[in-house]
């Protein structure tokens, strides 16, 4: 039911783990639905220098988290904000239809982490 790319990212997740003193961090989803994604970023010169994820969820949830970190790394914040759940799913050669709704939150988590970073910058202002 999953593509080879999904299984590859599930089996060997990229950028998995926690980050000390992240510049931006966010969590989306909730345990009731069975999916939680947490993304932390380090930003240098308006670019995503480093990124880490942690996920509680199904195979699709893990794979989309891993894929979004791979796609975002090295990109400018504006470029990273252009990534959508749809482009992440496409990069994984698609997800089963039933997974499109609940497990495909990774881009949302990334956008919120960037938002968190921007808010912190404003406060520092």
């Amino acid at each position: 039911m999953y593509s080879e790319k999904v299984m590859d990212h599930f089996t060997n997740p990229r950028n998995m783990g926690s980050m000390e003193n992240p510049d931006g961090k966010a969590q989306v989803g909730n345990p009731t639905c069975g999916d939680i994604m947490e993304i932390a970023i380090k930003v240098e010169e308006n670019k995503i220098k480093d990124i880490r994820f942690k996920t509680f969820g199904c195979g699709a949830a893990v794979a989309t988290s891993s894929m979004v970190t791979e796609m975002a790394k090295g990109k400018t914040l504006e470029e990273a904000e252009q990534l959508t759940n749809k482009t992440v799913a496409e990069a994984l050669d698609g997800l089963p239809p039933v997974k499109m709704h609940c497990s495909n939150l990774a881009a949302d988590a990334l956008h919120k982490a960037i938002q968190d970073y921007r808010e912190k910058q404003t406060k520092k202002g």
């Binding site: 998995m16 783990g17 926690s18 345990p31 947490e38 942690k54 509680f56």
Partner: peptide
């Protein structure tokens, strides 16, 4: 569990 934000 190492991957789970709940465990951490």
């Amino acid at each position: 569990r190492q991957m789970s934000p709940l465990y951490q």
